[in-house]
């Protein structure tokens, strides 16, 4: 993780790993949550398809979804595009925001905290609507729905990314920085070889959780008329008069993307905790 292949190439002996856990121990938490999820889904499926339980007034019929599957998948695609673009922009801007927050220049610190509070303390939905409808009035710049959504989501998530980068940098023990200073490393070298590699480790789980939240928050862009998974589901629901089946399938799609990511977060957390003292 030093980011410098020449430093990494040095080891003579293979790094010794911590005591290896047997596979069932390692995967137990995933297996458990997977099992729980499968059980819950099975129960729901049984209730829905078998028409068991409930008041028997609604006859579930998932066959109506089939013609609209491609529409839903197209929506999912837009949702994913929106998520990926906003994550990329958000993280880049987040680094700058964290840099400004930790800057020795008061004006930069002040500006970035003001931005962070503004972004954190207003709802994403309001931000989306505001960027789409009010921003053109204020600035004269017209944005397409997609652009407005990217701007608003990035505006929101960059503040959170920025705050986690800042906390990660500040969580690196002071002695580490001082040791690097005593060793004669310049400020840039201290950041590159000591602070950032450690801060990244600290921050990765938080970044992943934030990104998962962002993925789900994209469902709000349907209010701007963007054809994301949520909006296309509504379209399909209106066409079929079967909102319950359609939305259930949409939920499954969101889940199918987000759940593996949460498993990944847990895995990363466990891996990183092994590298901590």
């Amino acid at each position: 993780m030093s980011g410098d292949p020449t430093v990494r190439a040095v080891p003579l002996a293979k790094p010794r790993r911590a005591r290896r856990l047997p596979p069932w121990e390692v995967s137990r938490p995933y297996a458990l949550s997977l099992a729980a999820v499968v059980a819950l889904c099975a129960l729901l499926l049984w209730l829905v398809l078998g028409g068991v339980g409930g008041d028997g007034t609604y006859a579930w019929d998932f066959r109506v979804v089939e013609p609209y599957l491609s529409l839903l998948l197209k929506g999912l695609r837009l949702t994913l595009e929106l998520t990926v673009v906003s994550i990329a922009l958000g993280m880049s801007i987040g680094v700058l925001v964290a840099g400004a927050r930790l800057s020795s220049i008061p004006l930069l610190r002040w500006l970035s905290s003001a931005y962070i509070e503004l972004a954190r303390c207003t709802p994403v939905l309001v931000q989306l609507v505001w960027v789409f409808y009010a921003l053109p009035i204020v600035t004269g710049v017209r944005l397409s729905g997609f652009q407005a959504a990217v701007v608003a989501l990035t505006f929101n998530v960059a503040a959170f990314y920025g705050e986690s980068f800042r906390s990660g940098i500040q969580a690196v023990p002071r002695e580490q920085v001082e040791t690097a200073e005593i060793l004669g490393l310049s400020y840039a070298q201290r950041m590159r070889f000591v602070v950032i590699p450690q801060a990244v480790r600290i921050v990765i789980p938080v970044l992943l959780s934030l990104s998962i939240s962002l993925f789900k928050d994209t469902s709000l862009v349907s209010v701007l008329g963007l054809n994301d998974l949520m909006n296309n589901s509504t379209t399909a629901a209106l066409a079929t008069y079967r909102p319950l089946e359609i939305l259930t399938v949409a939920a499954v799609m969101y889940f199918a993307v987000a759940f593996p990511l949460t498993l990944l977060v847990r895995r990363v957390e466990r891996r990183l905790s092994r590298h901590r003292r």
């Binding site: 430093v7 990494r8 040095v10 080891p11 790094p15 580490q176 070889f193 450690q198 901590r276």
Partner: peptide, 15 residues
């Protein structure tokens, strides 16, 4: 907190 945890002992010494 003296050694850099993300580097091996050798990397710590050669850095």
């Amino acid at each position: 907190y003296t050694l850099f945890p993300q580097l091996t002992v050798l990397q710590n010494v050669t850095l």
